[in-house]
Computed example of a mutant assay.
Amino acid sequence: MSRLALIRPFALATLLGALSACTLLPEAEPIRVYLLPTADAPANQAAAPLQQALRIHTPHASRILAGPRIAVVPEGNQISSYQGARWGDAAPTLLRDRLIEQFRQSGPTPVSSDDSNLPADLELFSELRAFQSQYVDGRPQVLVRLDAQLVSAVDQRIIASRRFDIRQASEDPQLNNVVEAFGRASDELSQQLQRWIEQVAKSQPEQ
């Protein structure tokens, strides 16, 4: 028997042994991917529909809020994320799309995002300061904090600025219910921001 014929069975046995060893490694934990829940936007009767074209820019955010992780503050100043779960997109993008949907559902406002080059009269810039659940007296509460600036697209003049601070309690610590609270908080933020933009735009002198 040749030396090559002796080596081949040994090499095959070694390969099979390595493959069997791989099966002993623990399987990766499955990741649960969540959409940002939303309810149908109610018709806004408080102000006339926005006539100017509006471009909504993706909010700026810190590193931990800029990704798809679902942030949580379990206690004090410690910020973490829910293990084995994430948003379907980066949190600022989800919130931007929710704001755009608010305008589209409730009226004929010409609205676009910063992903397009569509012309606009007004631009909304913002910074996402908080988009997390945090525990208050042992119960989870979602906090969404957004610093917004409404800007004239013609000359980049800041027309108005405002901080929005939304808090929404979760029914219990289960992640599904926490995610629902994120949705309710985002809906409330979208409605408040829409009313603010329409009121500010209406108060501006016609060009």
Rank of each mutant, 00 (worst) to 15 (best):
residue 67 G to W: 11
residue 110 P to F: 06
residue 107 G to C: 02
residue 19 L to P: 08
residue 79 I to Y: 08
residue 53 A to I: 08
residue 57 H to I: 07
residue 166 I to L: 06
residue 91 A to M: 11
residue 93 T to G: 08
residue 1 M to E: 14
residue 158 I to F: 04
residue 47 A to H: 14
residue 53 A to Y: 06
residue 2 S to V: 02
residue 21 A to M: 12
residue 16 L to I: 11
residue 121 D to P: 08
residue 192 Q to V: 03
residue 60 H to C: 10
residue 138 G to R: 01
residue 203 S to D: 02
residue 188 E to G: 08
residue 197 I to Y: 03
residue 147 D to I: 11
residue 92 P to S: 02
residue 97 D to N: 12
residue 160 A to M: 03
residue 163 R to K: 14
residue 47 A to D: 13
residue 49 P to C: 00
residue 62 S to Y: 02
residue 26 P to A: 01
residue 7 I to E: 09
residue 167 R to L: 11
residue 80 S to T: 13
residue 24 L to E: 05
residue 148 A to Y: 01
residue 42 P to Y: 01
residue 164 F to I: 00
residue 187 D to Q: 06
residue 175 L to S: 03
residue 15 L to E: 02
residue 151 V to F: 02
residue 98 R to M: 08
residue 163 R to A: 13
residue 169 A to M: 12
residue 1 M to N: 13
residue 118 L to D: 15
residue 191 Q to N: 09
residue 7 I to W: 12
residue 47 A to N: 14
residue 144 V to T: 05
residue 105 Q to P: 04
residue 77 N to Q: 14
residue 101 E to C: 06
residue 133 S to T: 09
residue 46 A to G: 07
residue 27 E to K: 15
residue 63 R to G: 14
residue 96 R to Y: 06
residue 98 R to G: 09
residue 31 I to R: 09
residue 180 E to Y: 12
residue 136 V to C: 05
residue 99 L to A: 09
residue 25 L to S: 09
residue 124 L to N: 00
residue 46 A to M: 07
residue 113 S to P: 01
residue 119 P to A: 05
residue 116 S to Y: 13
residue 118 L to P: 07
residue 151 V to G: 04
residue 146 L to Y: 02
residue 79 I to A: 10
residue 155 D to W: 02
residue 46 A to Y: 10
residue 167 R to I: 06
residue 47 A to P: 10
residue 125 F to M: 15
residue 4 L to C: 10
residue 101 E to D: 14
residue 200 V to P: 10
residue 21 A to I: 07
residue 112 S to M: 13
residue 135 Y to C: 07
residue 100 I to A: 02
residue 91 A to V: 02
residue 50 L to V: 08
residue 97 D to G: 05
residue 66 A to K: 04
residue 104 R to G: 08
residue 55 R to Y: 04
residue 193 L to M: 01
residue 171 E to W: 11
residue 19 L to N: 10
residue 55 R to P: 00
residue 150 L to Q: 05
residue 58 T to N: 11
residue 186 S to D: 08
residue 112 S to N: 12
residue 73 V to P: 05
residue 89 D to E: 10
residue 22 C to R: 07
residue 14 T to Q: 14
residue 92 P to Y: 08
residue 100 I to F: 00
residue 36 L to K: 08
residue 64 I to H: 13
residue 4 L to R: 15
residue 11 A to F: 12
residue 85 A to V: 05
residue 100 I to K: 03
residue 18 A to P: 01
residue 132 Q to I: 01
residue 95 L to V: 02
residue 164 F to S: 02
residue 191 Q to W: 03
residue 58 T to H: 05
residue 49 P to D: 05
residue 10 F to A: 15
residue 54 L to M: 00
residue 29 E to S: 15
residue 117 N to Y: 14
residue 114 D to N: 11
residue 160 A to P: 02
residue 182 F to Q: 01
residue 172 D to Y: 10
residue 33 V to S: 06
residue 121 D to R: 05
residue 36 L to T: 01
residue 158 I to S: 09
residue 162 R to C: 05
